[in-house]
């Protein structure tokens, strides 16, 4: 079974993000980049599927300029078999990303596309859904459990929805986007890193894919969130109730 996994390069969630003074973007000096954590979970799931079946191929795809090889190499070191880098130096919105991915899917013909439910930089949460629509494939978003049928023709996916869990099933090919609790991704080992040296990263130019990349979305400005006020400690329950009543006005 061939599984395609999308990998986006995003700022490390542990780094402090600063917005440029003119609001045009974020300061990129001294920022560390990682694989989008939800994509990492998607990759882990793909690797587990392959390990369980004892056969198959896990193919990574990332869109961006040459620096994204760093994230692709990390994914290969975790255990993916090969990678595709779609070279593109313009900013893309979710629809443009989905259109490029649709071309890659047509070309690669995977049975399953595993994606993060969202990227932690723009939190758009749309690419997976849009890709499903473009391909006319079934989708299961916010997955917390994925079970492949014995004949490998269908999946059952448990989804985290408001107020509970929903289990849906569909026939492959299809698209699954991962939620936080799907699994705990492994990390690369030195032997894995050594093996990754020899794995292929195929480069294709986005411009050659004949995908419509014209922006539907423009970012006007970015603002940092307002600073949270420090909390306060109260001495007694009475004082707390008083403050909740008089100051917060919630009781």
């Amino acid at each position: 079974m061939k599984v395609l996994v999308t990998v986006k390069r995003v700022p490390d969630p542990e780094t402090t993000i600063r917005v440029k003074s003119d609001g045009s973007g974020i300061e990129t000096d001294n920022i560390k980049y990682v694989i989008n954590p939800f994509d990492e979970i998607a990759l882990e799931e793909a690797l587990r599927i392959k390990e369980k079946l004892g056969a198959g191929e896990v193919v990574l795809v990332s869109i961006g300029d040459s620096v994204v090889t760093e994230q692709l190499r990390t994914g290969l070191a975790m255990g993916a078999d090969r990678a595709i880098l779609v070279g593109c130096d313009q900013d893309l919105d979710s629809l443009a990303v989905a259109r490029i991915l649709a071309k890659i899917v047509e070309d690669e013909g995977p049975q399953l596309v595993l994606m993060g439910k969202q990227a932690i930089d723009d939190d758009a949460n749309q690419a997976g859904q849009m890709l499903a629509a473009l391909l006319g494939w079934p989708q299961a978003t916010f997955a917390s459990e994925v079970v492949l049928s014995d004949d490998q023709q269908a999946v059952k996916v448990t989804r985290e929805v408001d107020g509970g869990l929903e289990t849906i099933g569909f026939a492959l090919p299809g698209i699954i986007t991962s939620d936080l609790r799907l699994n705990e991704p492994r990390y690369a080992s030195l032997p894995g890193i050594m093996k990754a040296r020899k794995k292929e990263i195929k480069e294709v130019a986005a411009a050659d894919l004949d995908a419509d990349m014209s922006p539907r979305l423009t970012i006007n400005s970015l603002e940092p969130p307002t600073q949270k006020e420090a909390g306060k400690k109260v001495e007694t329950v009475e004082e707390l109730i008083g403050l909740l009543h008089d100051e917060a006005k919630v009781i």
């Binding site: 760093e70 190499r73 990390t74 070191a77 990390y187 030195l190 890193i193 040296r197």
Partner: peptide, 14 residues
């Protein structure tokens, strides 16, 4: 190198 940073990050995470 990219690979050296990757190893360092693995050790850090461990």
């Amino acid at each position: 190198s990219e690979e050296e940073r990757l190893v360092r990050d693995v050790a850090r995470r461990f």
